[in-house]
């Protein structure tokens, strides 16, 4: 019995040693940036081109390192809203954060990512209307001159190569933890980069055209 026990132990030990040999060596992560993508939000620019009540553009810069992208968005927006009243809103916004790239071949420049953003907006809004509230007909002009807002976003993104170094793809956002500061008599209806304030959380869909600048190694 002792002879069999010794043989079993020897077999187990040898299989452990064999397992160690088969385990591939873990490659050390290379955190040097390997490409930079610069682009713009085609949906926003398209709306500015085709719709008369909105003027907006947004640019995006994404720096790729290891399996992550550092992302910076900057945009501005001027907008008129309302059928029965005159509401206008204008300002700029910035988002920054990171994405985790889930594609296996990162050298291709393609991206399938999930990330987090912190966003801030500085803007002003104005609402004007004429009515009689029991104090005679008068013009009401309500303004907020120094508004700011901040929120967080979870972003799901996809970028694919079209031709040469031109990439395109979408980003879907779930925007939450919104906070607005600087409101007076008028509660703001719209935040540049966020959308309507009617809901505490919001969703957005953006489409980007981007040019890739690969770094030499």
């Amino acid at each position: 019995m002792l002879r069999y026990t010794f043989s079993i132990c020897l077999l187990g030990l040898s299989s452990l040693l064999f397992g160690q040999d088969a385990k591939p060596l873990k490659k050390k992560a290379d955190w040097r940036p390997y490409d930079l993508k610069v682009g713009f939000n085609a949906i926003r620019s398209g709306r500015a081109w085709f719709e008369s009540d909105i003027s907006t553009h947004e640019g995006q810069v994404a720096l790729a390192l290891h399996r992550y992208n550092l992302v910076l968005d900057y945009g501005f927006e001027e907008r008129q809203r309302g059928d029965s009243l005159d509401y206008s809103n204008s300002g700029s916004y910035v988002r920054f954060g990171f994405d985790r790239n889930f594609t296996k071949n990162k050298e291709s420049g393609n991206v399938l990512s999930l990330g987090l953003r912190y966003a801030r907006a500085s803007f002003e809004d104005r609402m004007a209307f004429v009515e009689d509230q029991g104090f005679g007909e008068q013009e009401y002009i309500l303004t907020n001159d120094n508004l700011s807002a901040r929120w967080l976003e979870i972003a799901l993104g996809l970028r694919g190569k079209i031709v040469s170094n031109l990439y395109m793809g979408f980003t879907m956002r779930w925007q939450f933890a919104r906070k607005v500061e600087g409101e007076g008599l008028l509660k703001t209806f719209d935040i540049p980069g966020f959308g309507k304030t009617r809901r505490q959380n919001s969703t957005a869909f953006d489409y980007y055209l981007m040019w890739r600048i690969p770094f030499k190694k």
Partner: peptide, 9 residues
């Protein structure tokens, strides 16, 4: 007092 827009319509 507080003015707001419920919906743009």
């Amino acid at each position: 007092a507080s003015y707001s827009i419920f919906d743009e319509s």
